[in-house]
């Protein structure tokens, strides 16, 4: 464990808490993409199957359970409890166009052809594009509530911090995982446009308005 990964995980946890608070407090999931939340639930389910087989640390197990539980809770809140506030008309990204290529790529490019490894690789590839429906929704509605942009900033920062963690591990532990690094780069690059808007607008108290 290193400071980059710890802050990355905390930023990830913060993002999930911000989202749950936003939905619970405002009793609305307007502006949030349910499709991205479904993708995150798939990502954590396919990545954390090793919860059953491998114990790494209490922290690792605890965080995995939290991520899986909160991702399903968010999907439940969006599609059941606060279903009436779900923005179905704008949340139209075809997630099969993300899932199918991730499955194919995981079958072709992986570290070893076992069930756990291919599922883990699939989850890495899917996570790198899982935010696209959310960014697509924000671009379609042309704006985002500030709480939603804080959520996106925390979520984008988590993988950016993981990139620093991988640099650190390469030099300090002589360890690296190219699949995770390349996917992490793609994932972080997708946020660049948003990061720019967040820093130049939201932090100045303005609303996040995308140029129409």
């Amino acid at each position: 464990m290193n400071i980059f990964r710890l802050f990355g995980d905390l930023s990830h946890l913060l993002a999930i808490i911000i989202l749950l608070l936003k939905i619970w407090k405002t009793r609305s999931c307007a502006g949030i993409s349910g499709k991205s939340q479904i993708l995150f639930a798939i990502v954590y389910t396919s990545r954390y199957l090793d919860l059953m087989t491998t114990y790494i640390s209490a922290y690792n197990t605890f965080m995995k359970i939290v991520f899986v539980a909160t991702s399903y809770a968010t999907v439940f809140l969006m599609y059941m409890k606060f279903k009436a506030t779900y923005d179905r008309n704008h949340d139209t990204f075809r997630i099969e166009f993300l899932i199918v290529p991730a499955v194919i790529l995981a079958l072709v490019i992986n570290q070893e052809f076992t069930v756990l490894e291919v599922l883990w690789t699939f989850s890495i590839y899917l996570e790198s594009v899982a935010i696209l429906p959310q960014l697509f929704l924000v671009s379609k509605t042309g704006e985002a509530e500030s709480i939603t942009s804080h959520y996106l900033f925390a979520l984008g920062s988590y993988r950016a911090l993981y990139l620093l963690n991988w640099v650190y591990r390469y030099y300090a532990e002589d360890h690296y995982d190219l699949i995770a690094i390349v996917a992490g780069l793609v994932q972080t690059v997708l946020y660049c446009d948003f990061f720019y808007l967040y820093i130049t607008k939201v932090l100045k108290g303005k609303k996040l308005q995308l140029p129409a």
Binding site: I56, M63, Y162, N165
Partner: peptide, 10 residues
């Protein structure tokens, strides 16, 4: 050992 190293991340 190698498994733990590469899969100890979330």
């Amino acid at each position: 050992e190698n498994y733990i190293k590469s899969k100890d991340e979330l």
